[in-house]
Design a protein around this nucleic acid. Sequence first.
DNA 1: ATTAGCACTCTACAGAGCAGAGTGCTAACA
DNA 2: TGTTAGCACTCTGCTCTGTAGAGTGCTAAT
Lengths: 342, 342
Amino acid sequence: MLDKRKRSILQAIVDDYISTAEPIGSRTIARKHDLGVSPATIRNEMADLELLGYIEQLHTSSGRIPSAKGYRFYVDSLLAPTQMSDKEIALIKNWYQEKTRHVEEVFQETAKILSKITSNISLVLVPQVTQCAFKYLKFLPFDDCRAILVVVTDTGFVENKVIDIPTGLSFNDLQRIAEHINKRLSGLSFDNIELSILREIQNDMLINVDLFETAIGILKQALVVEKNERLYLGGTTQLLSQPEFKNIEKVKSFLDMLEEEHLLANILQNQKNDGVIVTIGDENKYSGIQDCSMVQATYRIDGQVVGTVAVLGPTRMDYGKVMSVLEFMHNHLGEVLRKYKV
Amino acid sequence: MLDKRKRSILQAIVDDYISTAEPIGSRTIARKHDLGVSPATIRNEMADLELLGYIEQLHTSSGRIPSAKGYRFYVDSLLAPTQMSDKEIALIKNWYQEKTRHVEEVFQETAKILSKITSNISLVLVPQVTQCAFKYLKFLPFDDCRAILVVVTDTGFVENKVIDIPTGLSFNDLQRIAEHINKRLSGLSFDNIELSILREIQNDMLINVDLFETAIGILKQALVVEKNERLYLGGTTQLLSQPEFKNIEKVKSFLDMLEEEHLLANILQNQKNDGVIVTIGDENKYSGIQDCSMVQATYRIDGQVVGTVAVLGPTRMDYGKVMSVLEFMHNHLGEVLRKYKV
DNA sequence: ATTAGCACTCTACAGAGCAGAGTGCTAACA
DNA sequence: TGTTAGCACTCTGCTCTGTAGAGTGCTAAT
């Protein structure tokens, strides 16, 4: 365990580096932070800290910057848990009120809010429909050869698709099929709708196999659609403001990486604990972001975890601020979704 | 009118500059293009071309680059109209087939295709629902206090929203309201649905003013939703590959500008002619893109222009390629939309 | 244990010098 | 008269050099 002075010095280094992005020297610390000791003493302490692996040097005569281990210690032991100010909270609530009418907009605006406040990239993982329960589906008339299929979940997600009516089927047939399916599937989560159940329904109905396949195909298609586009990204342009992305090549490869949406979605999905989690540098499993840090938080509807929000940025990020914002989202995003959507 | 040799030289300059992004000197032209004259002669011709305003010099001893006027002449008189190769066309068609299931995806993938092929930013302006005709609306049950409103247009757009059932109204009341509205509005374009008609309906129905206001409010809300998000952007990261955006500040201000979506949407909407249009440099009205060029093209469904696609990039863009791709979209996007959507 | 002093190291920046590419002008040539 | 070779000139971009500034580690004194 570090003694008090070492902790103060480490804290000074991390704080300063986060705000200036410049390596910190012993004189700077002595000047800015009143530790009551001379730069020389600080130098000795810094040499110790470097030996212990908490800070690093870019070259022999440069100041020190925090290592991943240093950030980790800072986040775990030095950072006083802060809350967002009432003013900021009011601002966010107002933002939601003004800009969101649709569910999708809540996710999108959440991504915008997060990136705006933290000046970093934000990710919002949308609840997967497969975790919701099927409520009913319904066919609406469109014209002689087409109909509109509407699928409704218990959480109020509504998905629709214009479909061709299979030849040989009347609109009434479709309605009968819908009724049957609804009777059997209503209340089941999409994850639990297995082919076996669908087969049963088919037997019950004694209808032509082909027609049934078509109907199920349509249902599946609607589900596929819902699965897509379930990750909202925000603030990719914020990158350009960060000094670590002065190099345009770096920006490019990073943005290309971001387009591999499913990878990011996987990372977010794998969060086990409920709450705010910080992953620093090479603690990240996914190599594309090993020189970045990610702070993520789950959010819940009716007490159940349905999705994750996250902020991704250079390891040199304002952990205090980012964590407080995500803490807020962790506690309140469910409420917002509830209020605006369903 | 320029004589043949001047035209060849101008063409050489534009072609080379488009592919290398470097100013072109007289020797380079003599070497690469077999014009049968010495660099000195070319120098004289270039001096003339500069005087006439077709080319420019960055500093006294640099090579020449095309001016806006030069590009204009190139596009109008030097560029042989090219068509996309069969291979490319097959590639695009295949892309649509694999990646698009939903209408929205057609727009999104169109943006991706355009930016990928042209290495520039692409814009896809989605048909506004207000140009379509209202077909019908329908309420679907959700729970005791909420219902789902579905609005259907004649082109197959379906919009839905979960709404609170106004207190005092039963689900049956909603259905009666829907029937009435459908009877009166079906077939009208959204642009033509004026408040006056809505008032008439209200009188017909002899229902409580408040309730009616609520119903109309809901309808309007659905329309507002449809109006949003009608511009798809693609390939913003392509910018970073262009040498004119080496400067990171430039990239940043440009991306910020792009976020003002409505401005871009306006530019695209104002296209009067049906077909492919090229706007070079300061021919652009909107100052944010006056050092860029934009190539835009309308697309049609059933012969009627419903939207615009465009490619935006530095004036130094491959006009031949961009124009051929947009020509293709002009002719075929309607088909694709028709095939995949309705 | 702390600190002042000192020699040393590394970066960032500015200026000098040079090679390379390009130009305009002039005079010679077909 | 149109074309060309030759030449002096200009501007950029690169490398090299020197210097100021910040920072370090070590040593010896407090």
